[in-house]
């Protein structure tokens, strides 16, 4: 039951994009087309789950026993960067089709704050191993969902009549605000 709570809370109630503001750059940058939004969402979810596994093991089995918790930021960012690089090489070798679909999004993910944010929240909320994986899955799904909704709206927005100054980022941010407002409706769903 706790696991379900963690999943739903990460996916909708505390959506990474709309209530923690993590991963805003790809949210604004890649949300122009539905197809690229799907690619980005899948790549992020995939890397998130991998990150949660590796950083959890590193933090609890290496950094804590040796009392090096102050090194966590340096370690986390290095792990994420090398992980993304390795995933890219691995996917390129084993599944060219998947590489075609995810390829261009993978390098962008290193600087995506949602990934580092995930690792930090995992430590902050003191999740155990299984909970961390569920948390990563939920967060990735929530990110993909927000990206898809945004892409759908922005595809229609191209033909809308807007004031010149608001075109582009301005209106995208205001729409994100309205989305965040509607996602607040989920907050009554559960309370942890």
């Amino acid at each position: 039951m706790k696991l379900l709570f963690i999943f739903i809370s990460a996916a909708v109630v505390n959506n990474f994009v709309l209530s923690y503001f993590l991963g805003i750059c790809p949210f604004l940058g890649v949300s122009r087309k539905l197809s690229s939004a799907i690619g980005m969402g899948c790549a992020v979810t995939f890397v998130m789950v991998l990150t949660s596994v590796t950083t959890w093991l590193l933090y609890h089995k290496l950094l804590l026993p040796f009392e090096m918790a102050y090194l966590q930021y340096v370690i986390f960012i290095l792990v994420i960067a090398s992980l993304v690089q390795m995933v890219e090489m691995f996917v390129k070798k084993t599944s060219p089709a998947l590489y075609q679909a995810l390829g261009i999004y993978l390098p962008l993910i290193t600087t995506n704050c949602a990934i580092l944010g995930l690792a930090l929240f995992m430590v902050l909320k003191n999740y155990n191993f299984i909970q961390s994986i569920i948390f990563a899955l939920g967060a990735g799904l929530g990110f993909t969902m927000a990206l898809l909704i945004m892409a759908g709206i922005r595809e229609d927005l191209d033909i809308a009549d807007l004031p010149e100054a608001l075109k582009g980022a301005g209106i995208a941010l205001i729409i994100a605000g309205l989305l965040a407002l509607s996602f607040m409706g989920f907050s009554g769903l559960l309370s942890i």
Binding site: E164, I174, G177, M184
Partner: peptide
Amino acid sequence: ILPAGAFLGLGMMVGFMNF
């Protein structure tokens, strides 16, 4: 002061800046 306000506020600021 809720998340939605952050997006709305920044969106308007970017708009003004562009203008």
